[in-house]
């Protein structure tokens, strides 16, 4: 995928106005520079006519000059990914990249080369989900990981003996990365799929449903999770703050999901629910 780049120089007092107007025509993020703003948009979302109308509107008043360019999608997180440290979750789990040395004697070793996908174990939410998973019996179970990112939670499920695993993400970049990570961990039978849970529409019910996403998505999809979890099955959630627990718990209760366990770290929270 290509991104179009617009380096826009303009009068200071018009910077915010241009940001507001360009946001209305599909741009979603901007870098503020000394000269004005840098605006980017994915090529397939770009509406040249709408963009030009905004620029024409302010070109004189704001003394606008634009330099257009193009940028290919690459791994912008590469710099961080070159140097990060491996991480242990208790005594049992060790998450490392290919460039780290293996750790002898650890029960579950997970190898993740993240390539701009979320889930290396460093973020509190991933850490909490992994530690919750250690307390849930995965042996022979059917598991689904929603918003899978690097695939780390699905890999954990595999290491804990899950028999059937499904995983999805809405980002094609994550799907490619997740599948690479599955291979690195000898999970040859699992293929990460692309889409939201509603688009993917998984068939049947699961013993364990995993979702580390964010509050808005979790609330929106709770009804679906409720139908996916078997009776006495578990739903593990994270991606929200401690102060959001009440909202998540209330939403889950509507679909027959009772709160069973709670963990928090650095103001983030992770919950386990059981289906009635």
């Amino acid at each position: 995928m290509q991104y179009l780049e617009f380096k826009i120089s303009c009068l200071e007092e018009y910077r915010e106005i241009l940001i507001s107007e360009l946001a209305e025509v599909g741009f979603d993020s901007f870098l503020e520079t000394d000269e004005g703003i840098d605006a980017y948009i994915a090529e397939d979302l770009f509406d040249r006519e709408a963009y030009q109308a905004v620029i024409d509107q302010y070109v004189e008043a704001a003394s606008i000059l634009v330099k257009e360019g193009m940028m290919a999608k690459v791994n912008w997180n590469e710099e961080w990914e070159k140097h990060y440290d491996p991480i242990s979750i208790g005594d049992e789990v060790y998450v490392r990249a290919s460039f780290h040395a293996p750790k002898i004697g650890v029960k579950h070793e997970i190898v993740i080369n993240p390539k701009m996908s979320f889930g290396t174990g460093h973020h509190a939410t991933t850490y909490l989900m992994l530690s919750h998973q250690l307390n849930v019996d995965h042996q022979g179970k059917r598991v689904i990981d929603i918003g899978s990112g690097t695939g780390i939670l699905a890999i954990m499920a595999f290491k804990l003996g899950a028999e059937q695993i499904e995983a999805f993400d809405i980002d094609d970049w994550c799907v490619d990365n997740g599948n690479e990570n599955f291979e690195l961990n000898d999970m040859h039978s699992v293929k990460m799929g692309l889409g939201t849970i509603r688009e993917v529409n998984p068939q049947g019910q699961f013993d364990i449903v995993l979702a580390n996403i964010n509050k808005n998505v979790l609330l929106d999809e709770m009804e679906v999770y409720g139908t996916l979890v078997k009776s006495k099955g578990k739903l593990l959630l994270s991606g929200f703050y401690e102060h959001d627990i009440v909202d998540i718990e209330n939403a889950a209760a509507k679909y027959g999901l009772d709160l069973q366990a709670k963990k928090t770290k650095d103001t983030w929270a992770s919950l386990i629910f059981e289906k009635r």
Binding site: Y3, E5, I19, A23, D28, S29, F30, L31, E32, I37, D38, A39, Y40, A42, M71, K73, W76, N77, E78, E79, W80, H83, Y84, P114, M116, S117, F118, T120, H122, H123, G149, D171, N214, N216
Partner: peptide, 27 residues
Amino acid sequence: KLQVKGGQANPSPPVGPALGSKGLNIM
């Protein structure tokens, strides 16, 4: 300094290149 739509930050430009080039964990 960035301006990003609430709840919708992702590693595409400008977030990715602006933070990634400084060695930050974008995710």
